[in-house]
Amino acid sequence: MGFAWTAHRFSGGALALDVANSVVLRFDAERRIDRFDDPAAIDAFAGAANLYGAERKRFGPLIPARLERRNAFIGLREATDRHFRALVRTEDRPDLLADLLEAIAAVLRQPAPAGKGTPLDVATAHSALGLISGPEPGTPLDVATAHSALGLISGPEPGRLKICPNCAWLFLDRSRNRSRTWCDMAVCGNRSKARRHYRRSREEPKP
């Protein structure tokens, strides 16, 4: 069975975090999986974000990032993960914030490819900034991700940004009392409970 983007893959609560979480087991060299290694998966991510993403109403319809813009998009993903992961850990890393701002700028300053229709490109940029209404041509995934990251930099409330103890994904805790532990209780929470139950059953003396 092939890989598919499901609702669980959009547990981050913000587009920029969902993009950062496209790397599975990021810090496990032997089992690490980068879902964006497959160009088709990047295209499919935009469509799935339209269905499951927490910010889908903010950006409107998302379209895949153009092929020639994807290096900058991946650079943005990595800078996003480094900065916000350090932020959760309360590490004082202004260099990572600078890297993220540079990555955002690299995405937003990229000109439209030669020969492309200028009106559509301008409309797309304006749509991403919320400057026009009416029918939208679609916001490129990389542009929307850059704006999502900018919104996060201005900051969720303290304690809202967390790292899932099961999968190590970044997520926003939108619960009223900031009590959420897992990125997705139905997946990571249940897996953790199952592991604890298994360990207890192994440790309990047999009658």
Rank of each mutant, 00 (worst) to 15 (best):
D43A: 15
P119W: 11
P39A: 06
L101W: 10
K206D: 12
A54I: 02
T124N: 02
L108M: 08
A128Q: 05
H197S: 08
L97F: 04
G60A: 01
R32E: 10
L120G: 03
V122P: 02
P119L: 11
R70L: 13
P207R: 06
L62H: 05
P61R: 12
Y52N: 00
A4D: 12
A20D: 10
R82E: 15
A29D: 10
S154V: 15
S22I: 04
T181C: 00
W182Q: 03
I74C: 01
I63W: 01
T6G: 06
H83V: 10
S179K: 00
E55N: 09
A123P: 02
R174E: 10
L25H: 13
I33N: 13
P205C: 06
G53F: 06
R85Q: 04
N190R: 12
I63K: 02
D142K: 03
L150I: 11
R26P: 04
N21T: 10
P140K: 01
L97T: 01
R202T: 01
V19A: 04
R199D: 02
F27E: 12
L97R: 12
D34H: 14
A106E: 13
E102R: 14
M185E: 15
R82G: 09
V24I: 10
G134T: 07
R56V: 01
G134D: 07
N166A: 10
V107H: 01
S192D: 13
F27S: 06
F27Q: 05
A54Y: 03
V187M: 09
E136F: 00
I42R: 01
E157L: 03
P137D: 11
A86S: 11
L131G: 14
V107P: 00
A72I: 04
A41I: 03
L141H: 02
F36Y: 13
E30Q: 14
I33C: 09
G134H: 08
L97K: 02
A194P: 03
D92F: 11
D142Q: 09
N190Q: 12
D28H: 10
A48L: 07
A149G: 10
L152N: 09
A16C: 15
P207I: 01
V107T: 00
Q110W: 09
A7S: 15
G155Q: 03
P135V: 00
E30P: 05
A98H: 09
G13T: 08
G155C: 07
R199V: 00
F73S: 01
T6I: 07
V143R: 05
R174F: 13
A72S: 09
A105Q: 12
I132S: 08
R66E: 07
V88C: 02
A144I: 10
S201H: 09
